[in-house]
Design a binder for these strands. Structure first.
Lengths: 252, 252
DNA sequence: GTCTATAAGATGATAGAC
DNA sequence: GTCTATCATCTTATAGAC
């Protein structure tokens, strides 16, 4: 089955179409406290392993990647992977956690900025504006943040759809951001019930997941008219779609 | 890593909440022409293997399942799996294709029935009615069609989000149904562009994928208020969400 | 920190008896 | 059709030299 590794489904069109909203660029994503590094030359090795693992896991999943492949891709020896990260599962978790904090911190900061920009107590907020603030950062990073962020976006998408891995991690890092988003949605739709908000978010979450995965499904379905890599357009449509969807689900 | 096999993320609440719409029950899903069966006792074996593989693949993905696990789950010998299906990949494809035809045929039949029920040329169709017809069957089968259909729904969801496997198969069996759906949407929203329709569908597709996977994410996020297994409610909300989303994306 | 060597076991697949 | 036995390879992981 290693023969099917030859054709990854990643599309090639990642044209950096500029979007209207200013998005904070992500940090270089180096952990502050390296785990077992004793001198500084090892930090490069550690990052190489993380980057290689990030790319491979995002494309083939946890079971679809071997330590050997990670080591070869990173250009290091197999034993070093274990030296730095212990088990394969610990490597996966390290990859997942590496960018999780900045990812969610920026999304929360963006919606809080939007909340403050509007009049006090959020008067004048719209669902479109709120979702624009919350959704644009990951799309923008995936487009212009380098291959690492694109891979990470796909990894998050895949993990969200398959909580056998990262279920706890996913909840720990991502749920607080989502709860903050729903708090602000509740200010815009005060009569919405919690159940409505959670199910509405669930619909948006699925759309976000599938899109960030850039699986190429829409390219094929549309005969090339739409491109998975056109994340700018994807985000534009998603904001409209989700805002209207939330209003429809939460009115009653 | 086989130790993490112990806790599958499948929720336990699958209360068969009755829904208003009548849904055609799926056929027992036995292929008409068995591949290598010479006498009739082997057909049970073959189906046992397919059922076991269906459940395991849907939970752990292609690489996360071994032939040995499939054989043990099916209560047969490892060699029989190869005898009936050849390679592991062929087994996966056989699982995927087994229910694909009835799955999509029924969805297309449902929207065609709805189209005919309305006045000639589909006058009086609504997006809500159309999506209700298109979405309810898989939800209903997953709820009341037995564990096989629930597993298959999760398998489709997972495959849709990861076309490294089944990309061709997915397009071959599922895209025609989706194109027919969009044809009828176009009758309701005649001014919509193709690009808008495809992106709008993409949002719905992601929501459908995540929901049918029953990953348990919404249970955790909502603190137990919403349940992944409550597919009746999930479908109700999805119809509203998607109808409003399509209208918003396609108006311009 | 990095490498070689190797353990200890699992994996997909097949040959051949019954 | 079904089973036993087995191959050849790959897997994660570790011990120990440098």
């Amino acid at each position: 089955m290693t023969s099917s590794r030859s054709a990854p489904p990643m599309p090639d069109d990642t044209s950096p179409k500029p979007t209207a909203t200013a998005v904070v660029e992500p940090k270089p994503a180096r952990r502050g406290r390296p785990k077992k590094v004793k001198d500084d030359s090892g930090s490069d090795t550690r990052d190489s392993i993380l980057n290689a693992a990030e790319g491979l896991f995002s494309q083939h999943g946890f079971y679809g990647v071997t330590i050997r492949e990670v080591a070869r891709e990173a250009g290091v020896d197999t034993a070093l992977v274990h030296y730095y990260f212990g088990s394969k599962k610990e490597l996966f978790d390290a990859v997942f956690i590496r960018r999780a904090e900045v990812w969610n911190a920026e999304r929360v900061a963006a919606i809080n900025r939007y909340h403050e920009t509007c009049a006090q107590d959020g008067e004048g907020m719209t669902l479109e504006g709120l979702f624009e603030a919350f959704l644009r950062p990951p799309f923008q990073w995936s487009l212009t943040g380098g291959p690492g962020w694109k891979h990470y976006a796909a990894l998050v998408a895949q993990t969200n759809a398959n909580p056998a891995f990262g279920g706890e991690t996913m909840a720990r890092y991502f749920d607080p951001a989502i709860r903050r988003l729903l708090e602000l949605v509740r200010e815009i739709l005060p009569e919405a019930t919690d159940t409505q908000l959670y199910w509405a978010w669930h619909n948006l979450s699925g759309a976000l997941t599938l899109t960030l995965g850039e699986t190429g499904r829409i390219d094929r379905l549309s005969g090339g008219l739409c491109k998975s890599g056109d994340l700018g357009a994807a985000c534009d449509h998603m904001v409209k779609f989700a805002a209207a969807g939330f209003r429809a689900v939460c009115q009653n």
